[in-house]
Write a protein that binds this DNA or RNA. Structure first.
Lengths: 116, 116
DNA sequence: GTATCATACCTTACAGTTCAAGGTATGCAA
DNA sequence: TTGCATACCTTGAACTGTAAGGTATGATAC
């Protein structure tokens, strides 16, 4: 009852942003993304597979990603990469992310907003 | 149907953080907080009353805030201010906020994490 | 030969959050 | 007396991430 949060602070929308960012450069598969984010964030962000797979499916359905199956060592991987739509989306999301975080930083840092 | 979002990106936990920040310095009332955040954020962040009032009540119940009723011009306002517990909470939240946003910035900016 | 682990994909139940929209009531201006 | 800004509050809806589970393969260890 000490307020157990299932949707942790400051994480909403972050998975989508990071996934689009990673896939805007090169082709990757789900399991790889999970670990890439963990590594690239210095362990600060760990996305479960329950976040990544549904996100990939949703993004593909929206036309932001396209996928292809590729057999590797007898095992099949599903590789995703961002489409033009996905890159546009990434650009929009990045701008939104900056807008919000800059605004929050301004207030939290006490910089108020100038001699008000 | 184009994916209407009710829980906008990057806003989870932000109201709590901002409210605690404002009330860590001086006493304020709900309606005032709504407008203060709008102004201080340069219109970037606008919290509805449906977000602020429930948040105030929850924070008070958790011991993070304390309130007192104060009549002003025949109208009654409920002023809130952060307690020691609330300041501790603010400190924790701020740290968490930095951790997440720094990590995201690192990836989005393409700085990956090489050569850190 | 079989137990276990890492890989690799996937789904579901749950809980918490914000938003939008509504509701009450006062004081002041037109 | 109509309307608006103030000032408080609640409810329903929708979305999101988490945790936990489920399937199946290949490699490693015993």
């Amino acid at each position: 009852m000490p307020a157990r949060k299932t949707n942790p602070d400051f994480m909403t929308g972050v998975p989508e942003l990071l996934i689009l960012r990673l896939l805007s450069t090169r082709e990757m598969y789900g399991y790889e993304i999970v670990q890439a984010i963990e590594t690239a964030s210095g362990e600060a962000i760990k996305l479960g597979e329950g976040v990544v797979y549904p996100a990939l499916h949703a993004l593909e359905e929206q036309g932001c990603l396209k996928s292809r199956r590729k057999p590797v060592n007898g095992r099949t991987r599903v590789y995703y990469i961002a489409t033009a739509v996905g890159k546009k989306r990434l650009s929009d999301l990045t701008g939104e992310w900056r807008r919000i975080t800059d605004a929050v930083a301004g207030i939290v840092t006490g910089a108020k907003h100038a001699t008000v």
